[in-house]
């Protein structure tokens, strides 16, 4: 296990380096001069002199490689630069909004589990029954609905028509229900489908028949032999989804005026506040990589074939 862990972490080093290079280069894709954007946001008239001074201040006059190394050095000290708009350290700004996004994502995760686990389980158990057909229909439609549309439909029905839930914003737990469900819907649909396929595959395995032939209790057969094996591929996909959910929250946050990272980054895009966008890319990617590493470790803990790989 230690070996596996070491291998995975070592493998991450070049990836992280590459990620940092791409993130760094992204700023240089900008069609306008960052110095000019800085001055515009700071309400300073962009005279040639001011631009030159800003370029020196932002280090834009140095060679690209030097810029990268100084930038990387600062990033490693958690200094992601200063927001052009607020003059605050970018990281502080993003960390201020991050808890709201994590809350939203976490709640969606609960929705996904609460919906897809039972639906996938029962629809595979009662294959080709009415229940199964309903679940498959849900899985199909749910995965094809754009989340911004779902959000508005939900707002219309539950908040405006029935007046059950608050329309927008963050506050009580009631505020959390609609946005998190909206974010969860397509994932819940996808996982219902994935779990169903995976369970059906495993129900047909010889080792399940053999477990039954040994007279193992049905509950143990389903849990230990079928479900545990079926959840492995689902788990890997889940790690990926968690990252996508963090990113997917951008749309949902904008639909529901949820004050999270996603909403902040969209306003930064309109403001051309490049350090914020850059830091956002790096931050979400790091979370994404960390989650996937955790999933890999969990997978290794469950599956001996992975754990003992190489030994």
């Amino acid at each position: 296990m230690g070996k596996l862990l070491l291998k995975r972490v070592l493998y991450l080093i070049p990836i992280l380096l590459g990620v940092s290079i791409i993130t760094f280069i992204l700023v240089h894709l900008v069609p306008v001069d960052p110095a000019q954007a800085y001055l515009t946001l700071a309400n300073i008239p962009p005279t040639d002199k001011a631009i030159a001074a800003t370029r020196t201040m932002l280090g834009l006059d140095k060679p690209l490689f030097v810029q990268y190394v100084t930038w990387l050095g600062r990033v490693l000290r958690l200094d992601f630069g200063i927001s052009y708009a607020t003059r605050e350290p970018v990281l502080n700004e993003l960390l201020y909004y991050l808890p709201a996004t994590i809350k939203l994502t976490g709640a969606s995760l609960l929705w996904v589990l609460a919906i897809s686990l039972p639906l996938g389980f029962f629809s595979s158990l009662y294959k080709d029954s009415v229940l199964d057909h309903c679940c498959r229909l849900f899985a199909f439609i749910g995965a094809s609905m754009p989340s911004f549309w779902v959000g508005f439909l939900l707002i219309y029905f539950f908040a405006l028509k029935l007046n059950l839930l608050p329309v927008m914003g963050m506050g009580s737990i009631w505020h959390l229900i609609l946005p998190s469900f909206t974010l969860a819907l397509s994932y819940a649909a996808t996982y219902t489908r994935l779990l169903r396929t995976s369970l059906l595959e495993n129900l047909d395995q010889t080792f399940v028949l053999y477990a039954r032939a040994r007279g193992i209790r049905e509950r143990l057969v389903m849990g230990r032999h079928v479900l545990k094996n079926a959840l492995l591929p689902v788990m890997t996909a889940f790690g990926m989804s968690l990252g996508y959910m963090l990113a997917g929250s951008v749309i949902v946050e904008n639909v529901f005026a949820w004050p999270g990272v996603g909403r902040y980054v969209i306003s930064s895009i309109f403001n051309r506040d490049y350090p914020v966008i850059q830091c956002y890319a790096l931050l979400t990617t790091l979370i994404f990589i960390a989650v996937n590493l955790l999933v890999d470790i969990a997978y290794g803990l469950i599956d001996p074939r992975i754990r003992m790989d190489g030994s």
């Binding site: 894709l29 900008v30 895009i269 490049y274 956002y280 990617t285 994404f288």
Partner: peptide, 21 residues
């Protein structure tokens, strides 16, 4: 590997953010 290390929607968003809408 490196491009896939980014959540794809985030990378899309960031590229648009840099290039402009």
């Amino acid at each position: 590997d490196i491009v896939m290390a980014f959540p794809s929607l985030v990378l899309t968003l960031v590229i648009i953010g840099m290039l402009g809408p």
